[in-house]
Design a binder for these strands. Structure first.
Length: 675
DNA sequence: CCCGGAATTCTTTTT
DNA sequence: GAATTCCGGG
C-alpha cells in the first residue's frame, strides 16, 4: 500500500481521484510535485496499474528527471520500471522514432535547432523571394505558430488572406519539403508530427492508447494547441488523465502556450473534477503576501488564495545600487557573508535575472570572491561553436541526408572548400534529387567543378563514409574519437581560439560531449536496453542527459539562472537582480503590451524564495557598451510597502548622506570606476 | 580562397 | 562590449 498520509486532505483527494479526468489547480509551492509523484506511486502500488502503462509529461528535462527519481524512491527501482516520465518533446521524439515508417522518416533522422532552421528559412526565402534578411525571424515565428496550431502547409496556403501570409505559407511549404529531404524534424515537428499521425492513423493511435492508460501532465498552463490535441488524442474517451497547472505561472505564451487550455478542459471533459491546492509550504508569510499582492494586479479566471502557516519571516529587501557592477558586487559579498551567518551552503542561494546576458557581471564578481556557482540554462553549452561543429559531424554520421549539418561542417576545419564549390555542389545535388553528402562521391561532378574541388569533396565523402562504417560495425565512440583526431579538431581550435587556454576549455567541452554519448550507451547496456547512437544524438539535441552528468558532480554552488529557468525550483535565499523598467518588465513586453505575463514572471521569481528575498536594481547600467540611466521596475511599487525595506533609494536622504560620509574611500573608488 | 581588421548589429524568455 | 558580417589585400 502506498502511504498518502503525508499529504493534506486536498492533496490526498487529488492523488486518490482516478475515476475521471482531474484538474489540479496548484498554486506556487503547494506541493504539486508531491501530488504527482505520490499519485503515480498510488496508481502503481494500490490501483494495480503497471508502471509501463503510465506516462507523466513535463516541460523540462530537469523536472522530468526529478520526478522520476522521486517516484523511484517511493515505489523502488523495480516498481518504476517502464514508467514514462519525459518532456512533451521527448515523448514526441519517441513516438516518431517508433513510428518513423508511418511518419515518413528514416531511422537516423535529425532534430534541427532554431539556428539550423533559421538557416534553412534564410535559404528558402533568398531563393524563392530574393528576400533580404530582416523578415526571417518573423517568418520563422509564423511557421512555428502554424505548426503549434497543427496547420499544415497546404492549409496555410488555402487560408492565406494577404500577400504576406501567402509568402509565409509558401515559405512554410518549401521549408517543410526541405526538412523531409534532409530527413529532419524541427522542435515543433516533435509535437505536430505525432499528433497528426494520431489523427490520420487509427491503428497508430490505438497502439499508443493501449500503451498509455494513465496520463499525467505537469505545468498544464504551458501547453500549446498541438500539445493539448496530443493529450486529448492519447486519452480519448477514457478517464485516465490528471493535469496540474497554475494560470498565474503561465510564462510561455510567447512560444505558443495557451493558458486558456486550463479552462478549455472543462468543455472537452464535461466530467472534469477540479481540486485546488492553496496551502503554500514553501515561503514565509511576508514573501507569500508580496507574491499575492503583485499577482493581484492581474485579472483572474480561477479564484485562488494562497496561504501559509509559516511565520512572517524577514522583510523583503529592495537594494538600489549605483550601477550594475556594484549591484553584483553587493550580491556576491552578501552571499559570502550570509553563508557564514546562516551557516548554510552556497547552494542555498539563487540569483535570478531576466535575460541570460545579465549573468556575466555577477559571474565576474562571484569569481572574484571565489564563490562557486552553477550557471544553468542558456544555450551556454549547446550554443557553443565547438559543440555545434561536433554535433554537425555526429548528425551527418547518422543521417547523411542532413544537408544543414553538411553545410555547417564541410569547411570546418578548413578543407579549402569554399562558397563557390558548395554552391555548385548544392546545385548538382538538387538537380539529381540527392543529398549533398551523397553528391560528393558522384561521378557527374566533373562537369561542373574544377578537378581540384572535385577531389577535395571526394576525399571528404569517402573519409566520412569510412568513419560511418566503423561507427556502425565497431565501437561507435571509438569511431567518433578517430573522426575528431582525423580532422585535428584540437589543432583547429588552437588556431582559432583567442588563447591556448580558451582552446583547451573548448576541447574539454568536446570531450564532455563525447563522454555523454559514451555514458548514455554504457548506461543503456547496463539496463539491457538497446540504445543506438541515433538515440544518443537525438536526446543530446533535446538537451536531455547533459544535466544528468551535471547532477552527478553536484556540489555546493550558488545557482544562477533566468527567471524562466527557475520555475519549479525553490531556494532558501533568492536574489532577483536588474529590477528595472525595460529590463523587468522587458522593453519588448512593454511595447507589445504583455505586462501581465511579465508580472507572472515576477510572481514566479518571488515565489521561488523560501526564507529571504532581495530585489536589486542599478541606477546606471552598462548596455551595448555604454552607460544608461535606469528607472526602477513598476513591479517594485506593487509590493506591500509595510513588508519591505528599501535601501539606497533616495540619494538625498539623511541616512544616505551619513553612509556616504562613512565610506569616503570606497565611494571615491566607485566614482572612479563609475564610467 | 584565406586572413585580418573594420564596421555593424545586437539581447528577452526555451524545448 | 562581443559577436557577426563586411571588405580589401595577399
Amino acid at each position: 500500500m502506498v502511504d498518502l498520509s503525508q499529504l493534506n486532505p486536498r492533496q490526498r483527494e487529488a492523488a486518490k481521484y482516478i475515476d475521471g479526468p482531474l484538474l489540479v489547480l496548484a498554486g506556487a509551492g503547494s506541493g504539486k510535485t508531491s501530488v504527482i509523484t505520490r499519485k503515480i506511486a498510488y496508481l502503481i502500488g494500490s490501483c494495480g496499474i503497471k508502471a509501463h502503462h503510465i506516462a507523466a509529461v513535463t516541460f523540462t528535462n530537469k523536472a522530468a528527471r526529478e520526478m522520476k527519481e522521486r517516484v523511484s524512491s517511493l515505489v523502488g527501482k523495480g516498481g518504476a520500471k517502464g514508467l514514462t516520465v519525459s518532456t512533451f518533446h521527448n515523448l514526441g521524439l519517441n513516438i516518431i522514432r517508433f513510428e518513423n515508417k508511418t511518419a515518413g522518416y528514416k531511422p537516423g533522422f535529425s532534430i534541427l535547432d532554431q539556428d539550423d532552421c533559421k538557416g534553412i528559412i534564410r535559404d528558402v526565402m533568398h531563393r524563392e523571394h530574393g528576400d533580404d534578411g530582416d523578415m526571417i525571424e518573423l517568418v520563422q515565428n509564423a511557421i512555428s505558430s502554424l505548426k503549434n496550431d497543427l496547420i499544415e502547409p497546404h492549409q496555410a496556403i488555402e487560408m492565406a488572406t494577404s500577400p504576406q501570409e501567402m509568402m509565409i505559407a509558401q515559405t512554410y511549404e518549401v521549408y517543410q519539403r526541405m526538412l523531409r529531404a534532409y530527413n529532419a524534424v524541427d522542435f515543433d515537428d516533435l509535437i505536430m508530427v505525432p499528433t497528426l499521425l494520431f489523427m490520420k492513423h487509427e491503428e497508430v493511435l490505438a497502439r499508443w492508447q493501449k500503451k498509455i492508460r494513465y496520463l499525467l501532465v505537469d505545468e498544464y498552463q504551458d501547453t500549446n494547441t498541438s500539445q493539448y490535441e496530443l493529450v486529448k488524442l492519447l486519452v480519448g474517451h477514457r478517464t485516465g488523465l490528471t493535469v496540474v497547472g497554475d494560470d498565474d505561472q503561465s510564462i510561455y505564451a510567447w512560444r505558443g502556450a495557451k493558458p486558456e487550455n486550463l479552462s478549455l478542459l472543462k468543455k472537452d471533459f464535461p466530467t472534469l473534477k477540479l481540486v485546488k491546492l492553496e496551502q503554500n509550504y514553501r515561503s514565509t508569510g511576508l514573501i507569500l503576501n508580496a507574491a499575492n499582492r503583485v499577482i493581484d494586479n492581474n485579472p483572474h479566471e480561477f479564484e485562488k488564495k494562497l496561504w501559509s502557516d509559516k511565520g512572517y519571516g524577514d522583510p523583503i529587501r529592495i537594494l538600489k545600487c549605483r550601477n550594475d557592477e556594484v549591484e553584483s558586487e553587493r550580491i556576491a559579498t552578501e552571499i559570502v557573508e550570509r553563508r557564514l551567518r546562516y551557516g548554510c551552503g552556497y547552494k542555498d542561494f539563487a540569483v535570478l535575472y531576466r535575460g541570460n546576458h545579465q549573468s556575466r557581471v555577477i559571474e565576474m564578481k562571484l569569481q572574484a570572491y571565489q564563490v562557486p556557482y552553477k550557471l544553468s540554462g542558456g544555450q551556454s553549452f549547446f550554443g557553443r561553436n565547438e559543440i555545434k561543429d561536433i554535433m554537425g559531424y555526429l548528425r551527418l554520421l547518422i543521417n547523411p541526408s542532413d544537408d544543414a549539418a553538411f553545410l555547417r561542417i564541410i569547411n570546418t576545419p578548413r578543407r579549402e572548400i569554399g562558397p563557390t564549390t558548395i554552391e555548385k555542389l548544392s546545385e548538382y545535388a538538387a538537380m539529381r534529387g540527392i543529398s549533398m553528402m551523397s553528391a560528393t562521391t558522384e561521378m557527374g561532378l566533373e562537369q561542373m567543378l574544377m578537378p581540384k574541388a572535385v577531389d577535395r569533396l571526394r576525399r571528404f565523402g569517402h573519409w566520412l563514409e569510412n568513419i560511418t562504417k566503423n561507427a556502425y560495425t565497431d565501437d561507435p565512440v571509438a569511431a567518433i574519437k578517430e573522426m575528431i583526431a582525423d580532422i585535428d579538431y584540437e589543432g583547429y581550435l588552437l588556431q582559432n581560439s583567442g588563447t591556448p587556454n580558451q582552446a583547451e576549455r573548448r576541447m574539454k567541452n568536446v570531450w564532455f560531449l563525447i563522454d555523454s554519448v559514451n555514458k548514455m550507451i554504457e548506461k543503456a547496456d547496463e539496463v539491457g536496453e538497446e540504445v543506438t547512437i541515433e538515440d544518443a544524438v537525438g536526446k543530446l539535441i533535446l538537451r536531455d542527459m547533459m544535466e544528468q552528468q551535471e547532477q552527478e558532480d553536484e556540489t555546493d554552488q550558488v545557482q544562477l539562472m533566468t527567471l524562466h529557468a527557475s520555475k519549479g525550483l525553490e531556494f532558501p535565499h533568492v536574489y532577483i537582480m536588474g529590477m528595472e523598467e525595460e529590463l523587468m518588465p522587458h522593453r519588448n513586453s512593454i511595447e507589445a503590451d504583455t505586462i501581465e505575463e511579465e508580472r507572472r514572471l515576477m510572481y514566479v521569481g518571488i515565489t521561488r524564495a523560501k526564507r529571504t528575498l532581495a530585489l536589486t536594481y542599478a541606477g546606471k547600467r552598462r548596455q551595448y557598451g555604454e552607460a544608461i540611466t535606469t528607472t526602477h521596475s513598476r513591479f517594485l511599487d506593487e509590493l506591500p510597502p509595510d513588508d519591505i525595506t528599501w535601501e539606497g533609494r533616495d540619494e538625498s536622504s539623511e541616512e544616505e548622506k551619513k553612509q556616504r560620509g562613512q565610506e569616503t574611500l570606497s565611494s571615491l573608488r566607485n566614482m572612479l570606476a563609475d564610467f
